[in-house]
Design a protein around this nucleic acid. Structure first.
Lengths: 337, 337
DNA sequence: TTGTAGGCGTTATCAA
DNA sequence: TTGATAACGCCTACAA
């Protein structure tokens, strides 16, 4: 079914059908109705490829997600869901590309084949080939996260450095003198993943500012790694009384390790972190954390991208530092039993 | 950058460039090389819209996911990831549509605008408008899940009826005489969501077969609902000694409620369920469950869809009933303290 | 108020 | 071995 068929059956020219649909030229009420009747009867809808070819835009945005090998965290899932949702509200479709570091066919198809009008890039590294590729392609794009040259692109990001720093200050205020950072996985840190680096930087800064002792550990993104990582920390550092963490996925395991060591939270041991609100609330006990507004982040990213598309020269940035919500996993420091 | 430009700079006709790229017609080695050099230099890649228009196919599949309002379960996330991954392996792109029951613009764009060559439909209801719409459109599609007329479409599904029945039999074998089913959310059941209905059917059948007492409860898909639901069950039914469940997301809460009632798992109380392997393993203690092979399901769906696309007349079906993995949350029945 | 015609970038048929 | 040309379905400038 195409516009020519509709035109023929309505007894008008193809252009008249087109104008009746777009409203860009007045069409008499009678012909408009006749055309509409035929369209309704046959269930016609313009072919998206032809339209995209003619108009030079696809009304589609690309969303580049981490490849499926490593499973997405709850927070990342929140981003994806909110991007898809915000795009749908703006009548934009979303094309997904699971692309990691190297050249990736689906990414290349999306960018090189001009399948999309713009791209949202998740899980950006401090140095990122995909950013380079997108810049040279001229396609508008927005990062959820930023590289080490943040002024050269548009992005929305969480201020992990500030957030972790606030956690440490909060713990120091409660009298904790020996605090550990449970960071993301070691390979992410090694690969130059921004949040892991910036969390470390914020941790070091705050620890120095307060003159307390800081211990750093990397931990894979799952509950079992959390158990062993925190188990090790507790064993190695008897004076440790608190943890600051950005590793959402490992938290259930961290709780378990603390409990397993015979410590009560927050009476004997404190935890503060950065996590999705839903995640923090559903832990037991609910986690004192800076609540990552995943929904907002995705919506903001779509919003910025739409602006980048209409004005490709401009860059837009948004750095969020949500406040810490006290939920009861932090308390006054007390020497460990 | 388009094929005409490449042709001009290579000093050949547009068709020659096209053939050099597709290999559908012999091109002399020298011209081929000359063309390739220009292509490499300019980084040319055919425009996807033009190609789709000409070829009549987009090399894209649509994936219809539940709208973002209700957040996806771990298992659903696994489906999405595996579909995207399997599609990427087959050099297919994935267009996402968050569409629930009613008419949805993004769904309509995808189907009516022929933006995709086929569709994978998640979270199908026993009666589902989207299935009706897809059938009339003639677009090949595969359901992850099936309607109450399963012979009229292609699908992959889990045999929830059999799986829950096996859980009940396993519990009965251990001597449990009073067993509860913790089903998915009540509104899902009311909306005619297949897995919830089939889980109930399997539960009732097995309970009848074993002549034991069954209690049914619906529970929203999150941990806190699990706490209150199981808390209520334990309070209302003192003789209850085991639970069978398909509500993955509520399980952490269910554990918590059981623990809160002073019961140990599996010494005092048993649980068996259906859950993603990753999920079951990461619970504490690890859950005895039929492991949903989410990765396989997604890959199978893509595979079936590809076959449906090449032969639109045929229907393909796949019903999976993975065995129960014993992990230590079920034990001999013992009267509750 | 409506019709005609050209072109978006490709692929494929027909000729050379 | 290669080139000219038509066609995919749509939108829109121009003409009537």
């Amino acid at each position: 079914m195409n516009i020519g068929e509709i035109a023929k059956r309505s007894g008008v020219a193809r252009s008249t059908v087109s104008y009746a649909l777009s409203g860009k030229r007045p069409v008499s009420e009678t012909t408009r109705r006749r055309i509409q009747a035929v369209i309704d009867e046959l269930g016609y809808q313009p072919n998206a490829s032809a339209k995209a070819l003619k108009e030079g835009r696809t009304r589609t945005i690309g969303l580049v997600i981490p490849p499926a090998g490593r499973r997405l965290t709850d927070m990342q899932l929140g981003f994806v869901a909110s991007v898809v949702d915000a795009a749908a509200r703006a009548d934009l479709d979303v094309l997904l590309s699971p692309s990691g570091g190297e050249h990736d066919r689906s990414f290349e198809r999306m960018v090189g084949g001009r399948r999309v009008d713009g791209v949202i890039l998740m899980e950006i590294r401090l140095e990122d080939d995909r950013v380079t590729r997108l810049r040279q392609s001229g396609l508008p794009f927005v990062g959820i996260g930023r590289t080490d040259r943040p002024d050269e692109m548009s992005w929305v990001d969480l201020d992990y450095e500030t957030l972790i720093s606030r956690c440490v200050h909060h713990l120091a205020d409660l009298g904790h003198r020996r605090v550990a950072l449970v960071n993301r996985a070691g390979d992410l840190l090694a690969a130059g993943y921004g949040p892991a680096h910036r969390a470390r930087a914020g941790f070091r800064r705050a620890v120095a500012e307060r003159g307390i002792e800081g211990v750093e550990a990397c931990c894979a993104d799952d509950a079992r790694a959390g158990v062993s990582c925190v188990g090790q920390l507790l064993a190695d550092h008897p004076g440790l009384t608190a943890i600051a963490t950005v590793n959402e996925a490992a938290m259930p395991g961290m709780y378990r390790a603390i409990e397993g060591a015979g410590l009560a939270v927050p009476a004997d041991f404190s935890i503060a972190g950065v996590a999705g609100r839903h995640w923090a609330e559903n832990l037991h006990p609910p986690l004192t954390a800076a609540d990552v507004p995943a929904d907002e982040l995705g919506a903001h990213a779509v919003d910025l991208l739409v602006r980048c598309i209409s004005d490709p020269a401009a860059h837009h940035r948004l750095l969020l530092a949500p406040p810490i919500s006290l939920r009861g996993t932090t308390g006054p420091a007390r020497p460990r039993p």
